[in-house]
């Protein structure tokens, strides 16, 4: 286990190193400079600013400086936000993103498991059809459309929840719902397929031959065997949530990293974009690592072989 963990962490560091390197040099290729958006500056002023940011040094030196900073959690200084350190910008905004992202993930996966399992148990009936329709709709309707509709109908018209801003649980409800849609649909789809497969397997047949009733078969044999593989899609779902959060946070004006990312893109705030790219990759790596470990813990076939 320790050996496996060590290997995995080594690969994560390697991946992040590659991501950092690629991002850095891509940013150096950027057409616009951080000053494009500023008012006209004299060449001396520009030179001064370049010096301040270390942009007058050769690229490889800048790279080493940046890399050294990243190791210490220093992603440089934001171009746009009154010279705030990027690391501060990110850490102060991580909380809201993690809250709505986490809530969306938990809600989506749990609801998806139920929808998928019910669909499989009642396979090829109207219940199954409805479950399929739900997942197709939630997979197909883009998060930004869903978010706007939720905001308008549940927030503005019915006044059930605040339409935007940040300040307590009620503010998280609508964004959470908007984010949960995609994991719900994906989980339901996956769970249904898995469970239909499991339900037609030989060991379920043997369980029937033992005289287990339908509830017993599902509870004791079918659920566990179809739940285990669901862990493998948590990683891709996390990606969906990250993607979704960029627009959802924007629509609901949530001070999270998704909103920051879009803002930085639109203002050419390269240090922040780079910092967030690395943070997103790191989060994804950690999620993938955790799901792999969990998968190994709950599947006896993998557990023993390790």
């Amino acid at each position: 286990m320790a050996k496996y963990l060590g290997k995995r962490i080594f690969y994560i560091i390697l991946t992040l190193f590659i991501v950092t390197t690629i991002t850095f040099f891509l940013m150096k290729l950027m057409p616009g400079t951080p000053l494009t958006n500023q008012a006209k500056l004299t060449p001396t002023q520009i030179h001064q600013i370049y010096k301040q940011y270390g942009l007058d040094k050769p690229v490889w030196q800048q790279y080493l400086v940046y890399l050294g900073g990243v190791i210490h959690g220093n992603f440089g200084t934001s171009f746009q936000f009154s010279n705030q350190p990027v690391s501060y910008l990110i850490s102060s905004r991580l909380g809201p993103s993690l809250i709505i992202g986490g809530q969306g993930m938990v809600l989506g996966v749990l609801a998806g498991l139920i929808v998928g399992a019910v669909g499989a148990i009642k396979a090829n009936t109207w219940v199954d059809t409805s479950a399929t329709i739900i997942s197709i709709l939630f997979i197909s309707i883009p998060s930004f459309v869903l978010a706007v509709l939720l905001q308008y109908y549940l927030g503005l018209k019915l006044r059930l929840f605040p339409i935007a801003d940040w300040g307590g649980f009620m503010y998280t409800v609508l964004p959470t719902l908007a984010l949960a849609a995609s994991p719900l649909a994906e989980t339901a789809r996956f769970m249904r397929t898995e469970m239909v497969d499991v339900l037609s397997s030989d060991y379920i047949e043997l369980a029937k031959a033992k005289g287990l009733n339908k509830v017993g078969i599902i509870y004791h044999h079918a659920l566990r065997n179809s739940l285990i593989p669901v862990v493998t899609i948590i990683g891709p779902l996390a990606v969906n949530i990250m993607t979704g959060s960029m627009v959802v946070e924007n629509i609901f004006s949530i001070p999270g990293i998704g909103e920051q990312f879009v803002k930085s893109i639109l203002t050419n705030d390269y240090p922040t974009i780079m910092g967030l790219t690395i943070v997103y990759s790191a989060m994804l790596c950690v999620v993938l690592l955790i799901t792999d470990i969990v998968y190994g813990l709950i599947d006896p076939r993998i557990r023993i072989n390790k």
Partner: peptide, 8 residues
Amino acid sequence: IMLSIPNL
């Protein structure tokens, strides 16, 4: 490695 960076 490509999978560890969100597509977007």
